[in-house]
Structure formats: C-alpha cells, structure tokens
Amino acid sequence: MRPEERQGRLERARRTLARRHGEKLLAEVTGGVELRARRDASALLAYTIAVAVHALTLVLAAAGIWWIVRGWGGISMALGLFPLALAWGLRPRLPRLPKDEPVLRRETAPELFALIDETALVAGTRGVDTIAVDAELNASVTTYGLRGRRLLTLGLPLWQILPPRQRIALLVHELGHYGNGDSRHGLVVATACRSLTAWRYYFALTPKPNIVQLVVNLACFVPGLLVTGVLRLLDRLTMRAAQRAEYLADRVAARAASTEAAVELMDRLLVVDSAATTLRREANQAALRGARRTGQAGDQDRGEGLWERLAVHMASIPEYEYERLRRVGALRGHSVDATHPPTHLRRTGLLTGPVHPAAVVTGEEREGRIAAELADARSRTARQILRDGFPDR
C-alpha cells in the first residue's frame, strides 16, 4: 500500500473505479465464477504503455548525449543538457531499503522469517528477503534493487493491534500479491507509474502565480494534462487486475489463517482510524510532558507503555461499534486506500466463499520468540511516534 493522495480528481476517479470493479468482481464471485490470476488485454496494453514511457527516457538520454558529442567544445553542447535533465527526471526509480527505519534480516529475526516462509507456501510463492518496520497502520510488499529482492514493509502499529491469527492473515494477504496477476506490483509498470508521478509533480501548476509563474504554468499546462492522462489510463487498465488480486489475496489469507480470521481482519481494518487517533493523542500528551527531548530516562518507559495503552483501547471497542462501522462502510464506502475494493465487499467475498480452517497456527512460545525479535523495533517505533508524532494515513 503506497502513499496516496487525499484530494484531487485523480484520487476520486481511482476510488470510483475501484468501487465499480470491486462490485463487478464480487458479483462474479457470488455468481459462482472462479477468479483466477491472469494477464488480459488491458494488462498487456498497460505493459506496452509502461515500456513506451521507459523508451522515451532512453530516447531523451540518447538525444542529449548526441547533442553534447555533436557540439563538443562549442556552446551547442548546452543543447544536450535539457533532454538529459528530462531523462533524469523520467528515469525508472527502483525502490530501495529505507535508511531511517529498522530493517530485519533472517539472521536477526529467524522465527518471524520462518513464519513468513510457512505462510508463503500456502500462498504458492516464496518468502521475503528483508523486512522493514515503520510507524504506519499499514503493510505492503514490493521488490527493491536490480536483482528484484522482496521487501515486506510492516507497520508496527497495525501489527500490534492484530491478534496472532489475524497477523497470519495479513502476512499471507501481502505475500499473495507476488503471484496473483497484479501488474502494479511488476517492475516495468510500477517504475513507469513512479516516473509519471514524478513528472506530474514537475508539471504541477503554481497556485496564484505571478507573471513569471503564469508563463511557466502556460508552458506546463499541456504536458501536465498529457502526463495526468497517461496515469489515468494506466489506472484504468490495471485497476480490474488490482481488484482481482485483492480478492485472490483475501482467499489465500482465508486458506492460511482460516476464513474466520480473514473476516476478522476486515473488521479490524474498520477501526484503524480509532487506533490512529489514540496514537496521535499519546504523541500530543508526550509533547506536553516534554517527551520530545531525547535522552531522558522517562522516554523509554513511556515508549514501552505505548503499545500496552493502545492494546487496552482496542480491547475496549465494543462489538456494536464494529457493527455500526460495517453498516457505515456499506453505505458510504470504506477501503484501505484508493486501489482496494471497498472493505464490505471484500468481507462479503470471504463470507460467500468456501470456509477454510487454519493451515498455519502459532503457539504462545513461538509468538513470544517473534515478539522478542521485534522488541528493538517496537521500542524504536514507539519512541519515534512519541517524539515526532503519528504520521497521517
């Protein structure tokens, strides 16, 4: 789950498209149609457009180099700098490992990686190479580096509010994205979308411009429309596959953790805003107490108690509140982000599918070992939230 825009026509269009495809796919599921991961004509066209975006980068780079070589030693060399700058801005951006977040590897967290490997077998894929822990109520998978290594980004606040079997459902759902036909997780399409997003930022119009900025806005208007149009087209071409991938990942999560656990995970997602409010309140109270000053003895104690207070709050949410949120979600729409089907549709898809028992379970001892492996990351993340505040979703 990637960073999402909160406003704008593109964001509203993505949510509308997600809801439309989500409803159609749910109708297929409830009608007895078996969903399968596949590459359709839309995915092929999206791949072609993505290749064209990368080809444009190569053309610009080649043109810049040609102008520099052609005008070597003269002022015309400067003509090559402009296409080279454009090529640099449009270059494929491969994800990298985070530098300011805890990163876990197999030698430092063998039990957690063993659990992921076990769940990956159920998902019909392999595990991940690295785990990054951050302070968000989220989880996602991606690949990084030229060798395409797999990275699981685990939002510790989300991990902390989930019971063990819902954690398994979460892990399997994320791992399911590696093999269920979601082209947005592919290297070619994903990097093209990142390049176009960067260009859309470069061509963004300046609000309330002066004379110079007005001229720049006029020059950027048409290219900005073109870039936004291509992004929207890629959204439309890949949205149905992305929605299908979410339903398939939910089914895989049900097989691994049980249908009941997968449904409970959907319910838990409805109350993440309440967890976010609690974490912001804790951060505000810490700021009032002067907890922003690092190096104090009390900072660590407050950080360790953060997760306990969050757990108490989550346990206090009554069942009728979940029922209310389920009804509100069905009426108004609730989704994890703009690319996911509405949560109530995902929940319905699980309830109308086959009922599975848990294929992967953890006992108290194993859960304790995993908790010990995450202890340092848990303390660091708690202190970060209390020091810097909880990030907006």
Rank of each mutant, 00 (worst) to 15 (best):
V122L: 09
D182G: 03
G127S: 11
S195M: 02
T352P: 01
L345D: 05
H21T: 10
S195V: 02
V33D: 07
P163Q: 09
Q285S: 13
E365G: 07
I68F: 01
L269P: 02
G368R: 07
A371L: 00
E5K: 14
V361E: 15
G368M: 06
V263D: 00
A62T: 04
R268F: 10
K24Q: 15
A358W: 11
A276C: 03
P110R: 02
M1V: 10
T125P: 03
P92S: 09
A192S: 10
T294P: 11
E282Q: 14
L60P: 00
E246L: 10
L187W: 15
V222D: 07
R232F: 14
V360N: 05
A375H: 01
L84P: 02
L137T: 00
A358F: 14
R165V: 05
S183M: 15
P341I: 08
L325Y: 09
T16L: 13
A382M: 01
A297Q: 11
E4R: 10
R327H: 10
T153P: 04
R19I: 03
P163W: 07
T119A: 15
E367N: 09
A62S: 08
R126M: 06
T153G: 03
D388M: 04
R369H: 04
L374P: 02
G333T: 03
M266W: 01
A50G: 15
D235M: 11
W159Q: 03
M1I: 11
L154G: 02
G295W: 12
V271Y: 04
Y322V: 08
P357E: 15
T228R: 14
L231Q: 13
L196P: 04
H177G: 06
T343Y: 00
A37E: 06
R184K: 13
E282Y: 14
Y144W: 13
A13I: 13
G64T: 02
R184F: 08
W66D: 03
R326H: 06
Q300V: 15
A257K: 07
D40T: 09
R93T: 12
A372K: 11
E321I: 14
L60M: 02
A50F: 07
L162E: 08
I211W: 15
V122S: 01
S316R: 13
T259Q: 01
R15Y: 07
G71E: 00
V272F: 07
A139E: 06
V360G: 05
R38T: 11
T153R: 14
L175H: 04
A109Y: 01
V215H: 08
E5A: 13
T191N: 08
Q7I: 15
G148L: 10
P207I: 12
A286L: 12
A63P: 00
S195P: 08
P98I: 06
P98F: 10
A135E: 13
L17K: 09
V59I: 12
R366T: 06
A43P: 08
F82L: 14
I370W: 01
